[in-house]
């Protein structure tokens, strides 16, 4: 379970990125984090992964508070797919990138390669194993980045604008993939179609505040709310 209580996050220079956000996400739920650019979606995801300093309030992941001393435990439960896949793919080959996270978990090299192979097979990118990440298309990079995370079998998956830079077909294929994934999913997006097709719940952020949280179909049919929050 993800519990967020009165969370505020400030960046340097007094820039308030999140103000007093409270939210509870149960195990197995798929939640769309909706909001215009600069609403605070990425900030919220990064805070869940322990990448931002919390100014006030707290975050708990499966009962463990997101604090410096718990970061290792938190990050072993969370898988974060960044908006820019290039930030995640930095090794010589795709296979090496997938193995990277497994090795950090202490799994030996041979076993890591086996798990990496199975994960790439599942995502239909086995043929890309020995390819350099710089030679992949955006869709292939996104799949490779997801493979890097899925291989680590996290309980909670965070996706930051997963369909940005993807064409319509790649977006559709990615949505199908996201639907097939088990576990808790939190997907930050301003693409309402993605939210509609993948998520059961939605949280709307506007100007760093949480405006509404609830059933996705209800929220996505509230045109006034979406318009006020610059989503339409």
């Amino acid at each position: 379970m993800v519990k967020i209580e009165n969370l505020s996050v400030e960046y340097g220079g007094g820039n308030c990125a999140l103000k007093d956000v409270s939210l509870e996400i149960k195990d197995g739920e798929s939640v769309a984090l909706l909001g215009a650019n600069g609403a605070g979606k990425s900030t919220l995801l990064k805070t869940l992964a322990g990448l931002n300093k919390i100014s006030s309030g707290f975050v708990e992941i499966s009962g463990v508070r997101v604090e410096r001393k718990n970061l290792r435990k938190i990050r072993s439960d969370i898988g974060f797919v960044f908006q820019n896949s290039d930030d995640q793919l930095f090794s010589l080959t795709v296979e090496e990138d997938v193995v990277f996270g497994l090795r950090n978990m202490g799994i030996d090299f041979q076993k890591s390669k086996e798990i990496a192979g199975e994960t790439m097979e599942r995502l239909n990118i086995s043929h890309l194993a020995n390819r350099s990440p710089s030679r992949l298309s955006e869709g292939e990079k996104k799949r490779a980045a997801i493979a890097c995370i899925l291989a680590m079998k996290p309980k909670i998956l965070l996706f930051d604008e997963p369909t940005s830079q993807l064409d319509a077909r790649s977006t559709r294929l990615l949505c199908e993939l996201l639907k097939s994934l088990n576990g808790t999913k939190i997907i930050a997006t301003h693409d309402l179609n993605v939210a509609r097709s993948v998520c059961g719940k939605a949280a709307v952020l506007d100007n760093s505040r949480l405006v509404k949280f609830g059933d996705a179909s209800e929220i996505l049919s509230d045109e006034k709310l979406l318009f006020d929050c610059s989503l339409l």
Binding site: A49, F80, D87, Q88, F100, R103, M105, G106, M152
Partner: peptide, 23 residues
Amino acid sequence: DRAENIYSAMLCRGFCARKTMDF
């Protein structure tokens, strides 16, 4: 900016300098 993002991505995948170097 990109380096900070990359480093964040590494941290999210359990990167710990001492452990990883020692692997």
